[in-house]
Design a binder for these strands. Structure first.
Lengths: 186, 186
DNA sequence: TCGCGCATGTAACAGGTTACATGATTGG
DNA sequence: CCAATCATGTAACCTGTTACATGCGCGA
């Protein structure tokens, strides 16, 4: 039973309790979003597929006045999730446009190359601050290990990356390195 | 002139000199691949589009017996590349399946959660070693700043991530944290 | 001469985003 | 009563991967 990318995050979210598609999207947006996003256009069709495959089922309503379709894991769904989590081959994929710009920064003059690095540093610093200030408070009520660990990684990674950029900037600014750049554009 | 994802890497590669689609692919595979990949199915059609848009042109042959279509940047292409590089809003997107597993690791028992972290640590350590041993030697002949900087970042990032996992593992193993896990499956 | 790597391309598919359509409920 | 937000869904579009088709040149 191969789980699609969206199925993984949907099943994982449902493991913590029954949720609607809307709720799943909201939780993803303020938790896994920075390393695993999902849109309505994926979530709703995926819920259908998972139901058809017997991995999730409709949870009885027992809620307020709003129309809402909550889903829960079935035993098979719980098993599929656990076996994916224990499975060994995962892909780590990083798509970082700032890093691509850095790769080509030698085609800019030194001042513009410094700009590329400064923006990368700022983006990482902003991300770290956002996770600490906006996201961490939301995680305070969560008891399970996972969300806290992932959040700590997110903060640590972004702080690391911002510092790396800062060190690199210091090297570039003092100009002691013999790195090659393009001539200033006239 | 909005450049597609593939256009960015293609123009960037051509900035260092005329290349064929095949050569671009080969260079991407041993340099930017870990943060910006591209397949033939993107590269060849993109070369056509860029030619139609006047950003690249056919470079005169002047080479061996093999059939080969080399492309070079036009003045407009060089300008489009530089203006993208200087442009401020880039996206950093991280899609890390191991991190998603970590996020849900609280639904495993402690031993399996440790397995998730160990695999993430190993993957980062392997990536760092691969970059240092396989990729760095290839970059030795390159004079421009960018490829070296991006490579240093790749090594530093993966070493950081491996160490982070190691520290996290130590915490989990000594069991002093009060993180919540699922009960052992019977 | 046989197989591998060079080299160019396409078609089919899978995955994902955006924009839109629709309507209910709640708070100001 | 109006706007925002809750809530579900679909269709069109865009991107990207995989697999395939084709053929040449080079070394064993």
């Amino acid at each position: 039973m191969e789980l699609s990318a969206t199925a993984r995050v949907v099943l994982g979210m449902l493991a913590a309790g029954p949720k609607s598609g809307y709720e799943i999207k909201a939780i993803v947006d303020r938790s896994t979003r920075f390393f695993w996003a999902a849109s309505y256009g994926q979530i709703y069709p995926e819920l259908r597929r998972l139901a058809a495959a017997g991995l999730i089922a409709e949870a009885e309503a027992a809620d307020g006045p709003r129309r809402r379709r909550r889903h829960r894991l079935t035993a098979r769904g719980r098993h599929a999730l656990a076996s994916w989590l224990r499975d060994a081959d995962e892909l780590h994929e990083l798509r970082d446009e700032a890093l691509l710009k850095l790769f080509f920064a030698g085609h800019l003059d030194r001042a513009d190359a410094i700009g590329v690095l400064e923006r990368k540093r700022t983006a990482h610093a902003d991300a770290a601050r956002h996770l600490r200030e906006e996201i961490e408070p939301l995680a305070a009520s969560v008891e399970r290990y996972g969300p806290h660990a992932a959040l700590r990684f997110g903060v640590a990674f972004n702080e690391f990356a911002a510092e790396w950029c800062e060190r690199e900037l210091a090297e570039l600014r003092n100009g002691r390195s013999n790195a090659a750049f393009a001539a200033k554009e006239g």
